[in-house]
Simulated scan of single mutants.
Amino acid sequence: MAHVLEVNNLVKHYGRIQALKGVSLTIPKGTVYGILGPNGSGKTTMLGLIMNILQPTSGSIQLFGETPTADHRKKIGTLLETPNFYHYLSAVQNLRIAAAIKGVSNPDIDGVLERVNLLQRKDSAFQTYSLGMKQRLAIASCLIGNPEVMVFDEPTNGLDPVGIAEIRDLIKKLAHEGKTIIMASHLLDEVEKVCTHVAILKRGELIASGHVDEILAHDDVVEVGAANAAALMQVLRSMPLNTGVHEAEAGKCSIHFAPGTADLAAVNKYCFEQGVVLNHLQQKKKSLESKFIELTG
Rank of each mutant, 00 (worst) to 15 (best):
L5N: 09
L5H: 07
E6R: 09
V7G: 01
G15R: 09
Q18D: 11
L20C: 01
G22P: 08
S24N: 07
S24V: 07
L25Y: 00
L25R: 04
P28C: 03
K29M: 08
V32S: 09
L36C: 06
N39P: 01
N39V: 04
L49M: 08
L49K: 00
L49I: 10
I50V: 15
N52Q: 08
N52D: 08
I53T: 07
P56W: 03
G59A: 05
I61R: 02
Q62M: 13
L63T: 01
F64R: 08
T67R: 11
A70N: 07
D71E: 14
R73F: 01
R73H: 05
K75E: 10
K75H: 10
I76S: 05
T78H: 01
L79T: 03
L79K: 00
L80W: 04
N84K: 14
N84P: 00
Y86S: 06
H87D: 14
Y88M: 11
L89V: 10
A91V: 12
Q93R: 14
I97E: 01
A98K: 15
A99M: 12
I101T: 13
I101N: 06
S105L: 15
P107C: 11
I109P: 01
L113P: 15
E114M: 13
R115F: 09
V116W: 03
V116M: 09
L118V: 10
Q120W: 08
T128Q: 13
L131A: 14
K134N: 07
L137K: 11
A140F: 11
A140V: 08
I144A: 09
G145E: 13
P147I: 06
E154H: 05
T156L: 03
V162K: 14
V162W: 02
I164T: 06
E166H: 07
I167D: 02
I167Y: 03
I167G: 07
R168L: 07
D169Q: 13
D169V: 02
A175W: 04
E177D: 14
G178C: 09
I182V: 15
A184W: 02
S185N: 02
S185V: 00
L188H: 08
E190S: 05
C195D: 06
T196F: 01
V198S: 00
L201R: 03
G204R: 03
I207Y: 01
I207A: 08
A208H: 05
V212K: 00
E214V: 09
I215S: 02
L216F: 13
H218V: 10
V221D: 00
V221F: 03
A226N: 05
A231W: 00
L236G: 10
S238T: 15
T243W: 04
G244H: 11
H246I: 11
H246P: 01
A250L: 13
H256K: 12
G260I: 10
T261N: 09
D263M: 08
A266I: 05
N268I: 07
K269A: 15
K269Y: 12
F272I: 10
Q274I: 06
Q274L: 05
V276C: 06
V276D: 04
V276N: 07
V277C: 11
N279C: 10
L281I: 15
Q283W: 01
K284D: 00
S287W: 01
S287F: 00
L288H: 02
E289M: 06
S290Y: 08
K291H: 02
F292Q: 04
I293M: 15
E294M: 01
L295R: 07
G297A: 08
G297F: 03
